[in-house]
Amino acid sequence: MRKFKQLTLNDRLKLEVLLKAKHKPKEIADILHVHISTIYREMKRGTFTALNSDLTTEERYSPDIADQKAKENLAAKGADIKIGNDHEFAERIEEIIINDGYSPAAALAKIRTEKLYNTDICVTTLYSYIDKGVFLNLTNAQLPVKRKEKRTYRKVTQKRASKGESIENRPNDIDTRNEFGHWEMDTVVGKQGVSKKSLLVLTERKTRKEIVILLKHHTAECVVRALNGLERKLGVKFREIFKSITVDNGSEFADYEGMEKSRRSNKKRTTIFYCHPYSSWERGSNENQNKLIRRHIPKGTNFDDKTQAEINHMTDWINNYPRRIFGYQSSEQLYNMEMQQAA
């Protein structure tokens, strides 16, 4: 993983030399140990039109211009701005949000763990700075999720007509999220009419730990096969980790017996609960986690081009993302604690 490094005037001087030597932005980023987007922003920041001796013009990069702009940007916003004199703090905030895809709240949590800066601001202040255009590169357009009002849901009392167990019969203890081992399961589909593959998404209700499996086909058979694969990896621990799984009424979850029955012993390995029709709010954890997936895989993406390795990389990002609901601990940290206690 590339370590973050703030650009100094000396770095900008090196950048000028490398550009004159015709190095590509990716090569320069590797040499300076920064993200490639930092190089593109620097090039834009320091570019000016130079007049040659033959009266022709050309675009050049000036390290002095870039450095001056970086220092003046925040200072020009006013003395009352807390980050006005801490340019490195401001640039680090930009880096985490733009390059790492963090929300403003998560970015502040991450920067506090690094303990490199004396400056500290609250989430409301950070949003205010972004709205007012305080940052040089960061705008509302770069935010992964826009702030919006909380949705309201209408409770549906219709019972499921199939043989599967209704969520109405799910023990109240599961609703409290106090017990580890109760999951929600959903699918995320690719480009309609194109993608044969889809994503099977499992979310543990207490820790929000995420497991994402790339399905070859969006079918009940492939869902059962994916759960069988998890059971093969976990062995007898599967029953302890997956005490229950709550799903919707999609056709891919129609085979409740196949999902519940162990391939090792033909005994029951978990309990499947079905939500009411049109009640996605009953799987609230899944809904929120799917928003994190969509940060990496927008709607309309063809999943047939994806590999499980790529999905694992995305899942690791989600599981290690600082979560406000957990005091900015990650789901991975909490999940590992639960597993240690159960050992």
Score class of each variant (00 low, 15 high):
30 D>N: 13
142 Q>C: 12
292 L>Y: 09
125 T>R: 09
217 H>F: 06
80 D>L: 15
321 Y>R: 04
112 R>P: 00
250 G>H: 03
190 G>P: 04
120 D>Q: 13
245 I>Q: 01
124 T>W: 07
209 K>S: 01
221 E>R: 09
50 A>R: 15
151 R>V: 06
43 M>V: 14
208 R>L: 12
247 V>R: 02
65 I>R: 11
240 E>C: 07
185 M>G: 12
104 P>W: 03
36 I>L: 10
265 S>E: 07
312 N>R: 10
86 D>K: 13
136 L>F: 07
195 S>T: 05
122 C>A: 14
191 K>H: 09
247 V>C: 10
166 S>I: 02
53 S>D: 11
319 N>Y: 03
129 Y>P: 03
119 T>Y: 07
64 D>R: 12
2 R>D: 00
208 R>Q: 12
269 R>C: 01
308 Q>P: 14
274 Y>G: 01
343 A>T: 13
227 L>Q: 02
185 M>R: 00
102 Y>G: 00
14 K>D: 04
93 I>M: 11
228 N>P: 01
139 T>N: 11
62 S>H: 07
136 L>Y: 05
139 T>S: 15
101 G>P: 06
227 L>A: 04
73 N>C: 13
72 E>Y: 03
137 N>R: 12
218 H>L: 05
185 M>F: 01
147 R>E: 11
293 I>L: 15
15 L>I: 07
109 A>T: 06
169 N>A: 10
13 L>W: 08
163 K>W: 04
127 Y>H: 15
199 L>Y: 02
72 E>Q: 13
182 H>G: 00
325 I>N: 00
25 P>H: 05
299 K>P: 05
74 L>M: 08
252 E>F: 02
127 Y>L: 12
197 K>L: 01
85 N>S: 14
79 A>W: 06
38 T>P: 02
130 I>L: 06
329 Q>G: 09
59 E>I: 13
51 L>P: 02
102 Y>V: 00
314 M>T: 12
104 P>N: 09
7 L>S: 08
305 D>M: 14
30 D>Q: 14
